[in-house]
Amino acid sequence: MLILTRKQDESIVIGEDIIIKVVGVEDGRVKLGISAPKDVSIHRHEVYEAIQQENREAVVNREISIKDLDILIQNKKKPKQG
């Protein structure tokens, strides 16, 4: 991993068209400004990891009938009787 030291208002350039600028530093929090092409996806790493984990937990590990799931939610959608 490349490690660089930057001060406020300094930036780094990645490739030809991605610029990351340190916009502010305060109380242990670093505010970054990122300029990148629109087709580059940028996410907070913890959100990305949480979604990977959510998908791993969503892998079906037993027999499930999607017909039963459809029936379940259709029944829930009906207004309560009485």
């Binding site: 969503a58 892998v59 999607i66 017909k67 459809d70």
Partner: peptide, 23 residues
């Protein structure tokens, strides 16, 4: 899809890994 059609849920079965399927 739900074999009876018209459902809200469907499966996504991996064509690469037999054990991998999502609803």
């Amino acid at each position: 899809d739900n074999p009876e059609g018209g459902g809200v849920f469907k499966w996504l079965q991996s064509a690469d890994r037999p054990e991998l399927a999502f609803v």
